[in-house]
Deep mutational scan, measured.
Amino acid sequence: VKKMAKAIMADPNKADEVYKKWADKGYTLTQMSNFLKSKTAGKYDRVYNGYVIHLD
């Protein structure tokens, strides 16, 4: 998940494709939050927020 999150950060155009894969795998927002937690607070906030919007 972190590898794909980094791919989104490097190229935001990949976001919809990645979010669809995550949704197809049934990842919940709680799971995504836990996967994307980082020592650098807020590092993956943009990715998480994008997934929230995708699921909505």
Rank of each mutant, 00 (worst) to 15 (best):
D45T: 06
K43M: 10
Y19E: 01
M32G: 03
K39W: 08
K39L: 08
L29E: 06
Y19D: 00
N34L: 12
A5V: 04
S38E: 06
M4W: 09
M9I: 12
A23C: 13
M9A: 04
V18W: 04
A7K: 11
V1K: 03
N49A: 14
T40N: 09
S38T: 09
K2G: 02
K6C: 12
S33G: 12
K25H: 11
K21H: 15
L36G: 02
D56N: 14
G26W: 03
R46G: 13
L36R: 00
D56R: 15
K20H: 10
K37Y: 09
A15C: 07
K21L: 15
K37Q: 13
A7E: 13
V18N: 04
W22R: 00
K39R: 10
P12S: 08
G42D: 07
L55W: 06
K37R: 11
N34E: 15
G26N: 06
A41W: 09
H54R: 01
S33N: 10
T28V: 01
K25D: 11
V47R: 00
V18M: 09
N13P: 05
N13A: 13
S38A: 06
D11L: 03
D16G: 11
N13R: 13
K25Q: 14
K3D: 12
Y27F: 10
I8H: 01
K39Y: 08
N49V: 10
T40Y: 10
V47A: 05
V1L: 08
L29Q: 08
Y19S: 02
R46N: 14
L29I: 10
R46L: 14
G50M: 08
A7Y: 08
M9R: 07
G26S: 05
D16Q: 14
P12T: 05
Y48F: 13
K3G: 08
M9C: 09
N34I: 13
A15N: 03
V18R: 01
A41H: 11
A10E: 12
H54E: 03
D24S: 11
K39C: 11
V52D: 04
K21W: 12
K14H: 07
D11Q: 07
D11E: 08
A7V: 11
V52F: 06
T30G: 12
T40D: 11
I8D: 02
D24L: 12
K14E: 06
L36T: 01
V52H: 07
A5E: 02
V18G: 03
K14Y: 10
L29V: 11
D11R: 05
A7D: 10
F35V: 06
K2E: 06
N49G: 08
A15H: 05
H54Q: 04
D24A: 13
Y19C: 04
G26H: 05
E17K: 08
S33V: 10
M32D: 03
F35M: 14
K43T: 07
V1G: 03
G50V: 07
W22S: 00
V52E: 10
I53Q: 14
H54C: 05
V18P: 00
N13D: 12
W22E: 00
Q31I: 09
D56G: 15
L55K: 00
K6E: 14
V18C: 07
T40C: 10
E17G: 10
V1A: 05
H54N: 01
N49I: 12
S38K: 04
V52S: 10
N13W: 12
K21G: 11
L29P: 11
Y27G: 01
L36F: 05
Y48Q: 02
G26V: 01
L55H: 04
K21I: 15
G42Q: 04
F35G: 03
G50F: 07
G42P: 04
K43A: 07
A10R: 15
M9K: 05
K37G: 08
Y51G: 01
Q31W: 06
Y44P: 00
Y48N: 01
K6M: 13
D45A: 09
F35A: 09
S33Q: 14
Y51A: 02
R46E: 15
A23E: 08
V18I: 15
M9E: 04
G26D: 03
M4A: 11
